[in-house]
Design a protein around this nucleic acid. Structure first.
Length: 271
DNA sequence: CAACGGACCTGCCTGC
DNA sequence: TGCAGGCAGGTCCGTT
């Protein structure tokens, strides 16, 4: 489900409801996520106040008094604010209950998400330390993409979706950004000029920023922390549009498989 | 190193 | 109606 915009929308949605509140209880109904939910989570979180909620890549970092909870939504995860002990659904694996009575409910049908606890610097956590730059930060630009891609032959789309290159760009926004930049998804990453990478970096920033403004992309089930769907699906130009006319030239959008992911592009506009 | 395929899961849709 | 197969917003890990 979630790429950077959806995780960011989730962060913004839940923050006002939990910031400054103390955890009263943690209910783990199923600890079998991508990695086991730590058995120490309940003890670690109880009595702790939420001092801040940050996003790094597609991870949410809850800064607590004595450490940080790191949470990833995986492919199908969502985090919702629930008022009181509403009956949990089949895939509501974890509830974090606050002293206000509000709870954060983690739902994840496919269980590719994960929850971690660390007392150390969360940004140095094993899963976060090797991550590339944030696409919406100033440290990310065309130069970065150009420099990192020299000598590499993998497809530019796979290059973009590698979190060591940059973070936050998943299958939807990789497709969209490449369309915007007029780049064929299979172009070898090392054979793209600096000028084109500058254009691509600009597209990535633009598409992500606009998706955040629209509340994210809801394809089937994404909703923000407070239950709102995202409207960016209406603005997708190639993703999930196989056979439909290109919004620029009218040619049918093609769909191929690249690195085990569905890939959409316009055969005329993208070279 | 770089690149690739498999793995982890459930649900939903299609086609026979 | 049932069932098999393929696909879905992610990303780590083992093998070449």
């Amino acid at each position: 489900m979630p790429e950077l915009p959806e995780v960011e929308i989730t962060r913004r949605g839940i923050a006002p409801h939990v910031l400054g509140h103390a955890v009263e209880d943690v209910i783990v109904r199923d600890r079998h996520l991508r990695w086991p939910v730590p058995g120490t989570l309940r003890r670690a979180l109880r009595g702790q106040r939420v001092r801040g909620i940050e996003r790094r890549a597609k991870y949410l970092i809850f800064r607590m008094d004595a450490g940080s909870m790191i949470l990833h939504l995986g492919m199908s995860g969502s985090l919702r604010v629930v008022d009181g002990p509403a009956p949990p659904g089949k895939h509501d694996h974890v509830d974090i209950v606050f002293d206000s009575g509000v709870r954060l409910r983690f739902r994840d049908p496919r269980r590719f998400g994960s929850i971690h606890w660390t007392r150390a610097d969360p940004l140095r956590h094993k899963l976060l330390k090797g991550l590339g730059p944030e696409p919406l930060s100033e440290t990310f630009d065309g130069n970065h993409l150009h420099a990192r891609s020299r000598g590499r032959r993998l497809a530019v789309k796979s290059f973009l979706m590698d979190s060591r290159t940059l973070v936050g760009v998943g299958n939807i926004y990789a497709n969209e950004a490449l369309f915007g930049a007029g780049l064929h998804p299979r172009r070898p990453a090392g054979r793209i000029s600096l000028a084109r990478y500058e254009q691509l970096a600009k597209e990535i920033k633009q598409v992500l920023a606009r998706a955040v403004q629209s509340g994210g992309t809801t394809l089937r089930d994404f909703v923000s922390g407070v239950g709102e769907p995202g409207y960016f699906s209406q603005e997708l130009r190639v993703y999930d549009r196989a056979g439909l006319p290109c919004v620029v030239c009218g040619r049918p959008i093609r769909s191929v498989r690249l690195g085990q992911r569905s890939t959409f592009y316009c055969p005329r506009c993208q070279k």
